[in-house]
């Protein structure tokens, strides 16, 4: 027993120090590509830390979203950044020699950050040991919530309002990206044979996994966000293998899928309000099925949304030239 705790202690300390080291290397690395790869490794080790902290739901979300999709987004952005590197030569002209005043600034910064660390450590160490949290209340009400996984119960019932707004944040990100960029050139890239075969195998498997995570979320680790993230991984894989949404799809069907989760969420709660429930109140007898309904819609939307984030802009079926012209013309904000 003694050696076991010692061993797990050693494991935790190693993991924590490795996390810090990885974060440091990811941020300090001179090569951006290396930095991103280290960051993905950091995310995966974070998932391990969540497992150690008895948080399998977060571990899944972290591995899928925090490490996987964020990593894909970062690598995709870096690729685009380097592809459009036409102005590199210009950079050297605007780089005079460094001045010396940064020294004082750096010193001040390090001092302030050290003060921050000291403050945080002191605050954490001095925290009252008996921070009971809300576990008792959750346990008391779990039967009325319609699901038995307390994290899902919190996300989709006790604090469902947070989740509703969070899905609005996700939608907002897509709206912002669609307002910023048009994805013009179709990436009619031929995937390698391995990737092609892999995708044939992986896509059905991933969809299956996603459905499983959704289903299992009501009583074990999993749920709409994890399922949506796996679905998005499928979408990203498809995009990477050269699959592009058809012209018919990028108009209203895509927009509909993007808002579907949020729309179902709002619609369910509005209908229930007509029957006398308060906002986001699910009657205990129906709660289980209603939560599943909302989760299915949410997972679908989350999957499509995260894939759209990876695509990085508003897909445009028209030839690139017209899309570009339209963008330039509307950049002025004069009224018509």
């Amino acid at each position: 027993m003694e050696t076991l705790t010692l061993l797990s202690w050693a494991f935790d300390v190693t993991l924590g120090l490795t996390l810090m080291w990885l974060a440091w290397r990811a941020l300090a690395s001179e090569d951006l590509f290396k930095g991103i790869v280290l960051f993905i490794a950091f995310g995966l080790l974070m998932a391990l830390a969540w497992v150690r902290l008895d948080a399998p739901d977060i571990a899944l979300a972290e591995a899928a979203i925090g490490a996987g999709l964020t990593g894909a987004l970062l690598l995709g952005a870096l690729a685009k950044l380097e592809a459009g590197a036409e102005s590199r030569s210009r950079r050297s002209e605007i780089l005079p020699r460094p001045a010396d005043k940064t020294k004082v600034f750096s010193g001040l910064l390090v001092f302030l950050l050290l003060a921050l660390v000291v403050m945080l450590v002191y605050a954490i160490v001095k925290l009252p040991p008996l921070a009971s949290g809300l576990s008792a209340q959750v346990a008391e009400n779990i039967t009325a919530s319609g699901v038995s996984n307390p994290v899902t119960a919190t996300l989709l019932n006790f604090r469902a309002y947070d989740t509703l707004l969070e899905m609005a944040v996700l939608l907002l990100a897509v709206l912002g990206i669609r307002s910023l960029a048009v994805v013009q050139e179709p990436r009619g890239r031929e995937p390698g044979a391995v990737l092609d075969m892999l995708s044939h195998l992986l896509v059905p498997l991933l969809i299956l996994v996603s459905g499983y995570l959704l289903w299992v979320g009501s009583y074990a680790a999993g749920g709409a966000f994890q399922a949506g993230a796996v679905l998005a991984a499928t979408g990203v894989l498809l995009l990477l293998t050269g699959w592009l949404p058809g012209a018919w799809f990028v108009g209203w069907p895509l927009r509909f899928l993007l808002i579907f989760g949020l729309a179902v969420f709002v619609a369910v709660t509005l209908v229930l309000q007509l029957f006398g429930a308060s906002f986001l109140e699910f009657p205990p007898s129906l709660a289980g099925s209603l939560i599943l309904l909302i989760e299915v819609a949410a997972a679908l939307s989350i999957g499509v949304t995260l894939t759209a984030l990876f695509l990085g802009g508003r897909p445009q079926p028209e030839p690139p030239s017209s899309g570009r012209a339209e963008k330039r013309n509307t950049s002025g904000t004069q009224p018509s």
Partner: peptide
């Protein structure tokens, strides 16, 4: 029943959200 559970506070939040969805759609 309806009077107790219905609240204009919720309306004030939900209306612009629905409006956003409609404007986007």
């Amino acid at each position: 029943m309806l009077a107790q559970s219905f609240s204009w506070q919720v309306t004030v939040i939900i209306l612009p959200l629905v409006a956003a969805l409609l404007c986007f759609m």
